[in-house]
Amino acid sequence: MSLRLGETASRPGRWPGYAAAVWGIAFAAPSFAWAWGVGLTGASTALAPPLVELARERDPGFIALLWATGALKALGGLLGVALVCRRARGRGTNRLLQLAGWGATVLLVWHGAEFVVHGLLVEAHFIDIDPDLSAVTRWYTYLWGPWFVVGGVAFGFAARTHLSGVADRRDAVIAGRLGGFGALALSAAALATRLG
């Protein structure tokens, strides 16, 4: 049995990209189901009660938002595969993949950690919230927050796997740092303005 050069080294390294892809598609599925109107299973654990009501009433603006978020999550799944696909790429594509990969990593880990920390502070009675949101907060603390972190970690490993196969690493590393720091700045701004 003969193996081509690099074949054994590349196969084990693909799992992070596939994990990120599965994560993205699994994360997109509820958004598409709610947008399609096939039910609201799980919506009360992922959405605040007023948003669940908008979905129940089939508010056109909210339905469009559900379609858009589902599409972004599915694109994230495609990004996971693209990060570990072993084809020769140009410098621009490698930079774009690193920018997006590390941007996704930071956004997901940041928001997941934010959900967990906020929820733990609520449970420790350091932060008061509307009692209607307590059930949603528990779901975000123990399920959705960790789910975001797991997705972020998968994207981080996938971006690292991609970088190991890039010939011109310097440009790709710079692009990855820009993606990560850009996502961090965006997340911090959203937190400071209470939009995130």
Rank of each mutant, 00 (worst) to 15 (best):
P49V: 04
P50I: 04
L51P: 05
L51M: 11
V52R: 00
V52W: 00
V52Q: 06
A55R: 02
A55L: 07
A55I: 04
R56K: 11
R56S: 12
R56H: 10
R58D: 03
D59P: 01
G61N: 09
F62D: 01
A64W: 00
L65G: 08
W67D: 06
T69V: 14
G70L: 00
A71V: 08
A71C: 06
L72V: 09
A74S: 07
L75M: 11
L75A: 15
G76K: 07
G80M: 08
G80K: 05
L83T: 04
V84P: 03
R86C: 06
R87I: 12
R87T: 12
R87D: 08
R89H: 07
R89G: 06
G90R: 01
G90Y: 02
G92E: 11
G92P: 04
G92W: 12
T93P: 08
T93I: 12
L96M: 10
L97Q: 05
L97V: 07
Q98M: 12
Q98K: 04
Q98C: 10
W102M: 12
W102Y: 13
W102N: 09
A104I: 03
T105G: 00
V106G: 06
L108T: 05
V109P: 06
V109K: 03
H111C: 14
G112K: 06
G112P: 06
A113C: 14
A113K: 09
A113L: 15
F115E: 11
F115C: 14
V117W: 10
L120V: 14
L120H: 09
L121S: 06
L121A: 13
L121R: 14
V122M: 07
E123H: 13
A124Q: 10
H125D: 13
D128S: 14
I129C: 07
P131E: 04
P131G: 03
L133V: 05
S134V: 11
S134N: 02
V136F: 10
V136Y: 08
T137N: 14
R138H: 13
R138T: 15
W139Q: 12
W139C: 10
Y140E: 13
Y140Q: 14
Y140H: 15
T141V: 11
L143T: 15
W144D: 15
W147L: 13
F148W: 12
V149K: 04
V150L: 13
V150I: 15
V150G: 00
G151K: 03
V153K: 00
V153M: 00
V153H: 07
A154F: 09
A154D: 01
F155H: 06
F155T: 01
F155Q: 02
F157W: 10
F157T: 01
A158D: 07
A158M: 01
R160L: 09
